[in-house]
Design a protein around this nucleic acid. Sequence first.
DNA 1: GTTCCTGCAAAAGCTTTGCAGAAGA
DNA 2: TCTTCTGCAAAGCTTTTGCAGGAAC
Lengths: 135, 135
Amino acid sequence: MDFVNHLSTNNIKPSLQRIKIFEYLYDNREHPTVDTIYSDLVSDIPTLSKTTVYNTLKLFIDNGITSTVTIEDNEVRYDAIMEEHAHFKCDACGNVYDIEIDMSDLKFKKMNAFKVEKTNIYLKGKCNKCLITKN
Amino acid sequence: MDFVNHLSTNNIKPSLQRIKIFEYLYDNREHPTVDTIYSDLVSDIPTLSKTTVYNTLKLFIDNGITSTVTIEDNEVRYDAIMEEHAHFKCDACGNVYDIEIDMSDLKFKKMNAFKVEKTNIYLKGKCNKCLITKN
DNA sequence: GTTCCTGCAAAAGCTTTGCAGAAGA
DNA sequence: TCTTCTGCAAAGCTTTTGCAGGAAC
């Protein structure tokens, strides 16, 4: 993926910090938190600050190239994939996985009067790896 | 509903604060935040503190009679209904509505290896009332 | 009397804001 | 040069913790 071009076409000037942060989000599909993003990138960009990470993520969200994942109450995670999909968090290992979903399967009762613009689906349980390890 | 009995059967000693907080949650289905619960109850119990609201909600959650709703990143809401249902938040008026849902309609791909223990579905859009008002 | 509950005050986190200097066009 | 971006420091919020007094049994 051409990150510079992707940022530019979404009205975001491709500064080094912005490129690196988006690249990180795109490559790390475990839906990192602000803290994780900062910690992992600060070795690469020693002058990086958390403020910039916050600023940049807000910019990405405002321009529609990133979305937030709040599968847990006390942590906000970030996701560079904008196609509709569900998130699954394993209670045991803490990893968050993407789950493909066909939204057309979803049928809600009493919804005729509501205009749904966004659907977020969060699942919790045990992932394959942890189920095998435990048994 | 007999709140005292409901708390007792769930191993929660029914103090005044606990009864009032659960009653409030049960009667106010707009899924209040800690702040709303505190503000609305402090006139009834003048000595009430937010610490107690936090303590009590944590106790309710630990004992399975309340769950959290994090439809928005920056606010945790609370819900006294434990049956599975979806939540719909109206962007316009900010209200959160309960939506009945038949979970058996949900089909996920690639889920054969995962053990799903909890499903949270959050919808956003415009509610009936706001759609009518706007047009 | 012993145990549990409440709530004040302080601490701890996370996120936002203000602003000055740096970088880029 | 002018505009935009970055990042330090401080402020603002929400939530948690420590602890002492109080209530219940």
